[in-house]
Amino acid sequence: MRRGRDTSPDTAPAASRLTDCHRSLLTRRAFLAGLAGVSTVALFGSGPARAVEAEPDAEHRWALLDAVQQHLLPSEPESPGAREIQALAYLRFVVGDVKVDAEERGFILAGTAWLEDLSLQRMSASFLDLDHEAREALLRQVAASPQGENWLSTLLLYLMEALLTDSAYGGNPDGIGWRWLEHTPGYPRPSAATIYPRLPL
């Protein structure tokens, strides 16, 4: 917590949260380490370890991320979902941004392979071919493991960023997220020419 700066509490973990942060990091590392090994199910859920299926190609990977995002933040008539806030475009910015921890960016992408593998094992179908209920059931299984929960939590974080940060970064087009949650942004606002990757740092 940074007193005297009005900072959002989550940007500076208090000591009591240190252990949680550390655990999160360790689960992410364990997860990534699993890429070199064999244990998909051991990472994302209980069950016998087995060899990883062929990894999805880049296009398939982004299709999986798109599907998961839309499940986590669905579109509704009165409120925007992942599609309307352009969450996938925003996530592409995040994955390409060197200011985001490389381990985390790798983690976001790697999770799709594990998700798809788990889907093929448990549901005998690609995640993309599952209906809403089956996707929900599978994601609940994912969330039951620390690694899977961490992955979904990471995707939710970037969904919230896509929803509520400036549209100059690719999400929240025309302030659709701000309008939904009745949020008033500050000014001056950044433009595509003045987002932080373009600052003379």
């Binding site: 900072t7 959002s8 941004d97 509520l164 942004p185 500050g186 606002r189 932080y196 600052l199």
Partner: peptide, 15 residues
């Protein structure tokens, strides 16, 4: 002129 009300820049990345 380099300062904007940009939550990502101020508070969510090491800028």
């Amino acid at each position: 002129e380099h300062f904007y009300k940009d939550e990502l820049a101020c508070c969510r990345r090491s800028v």
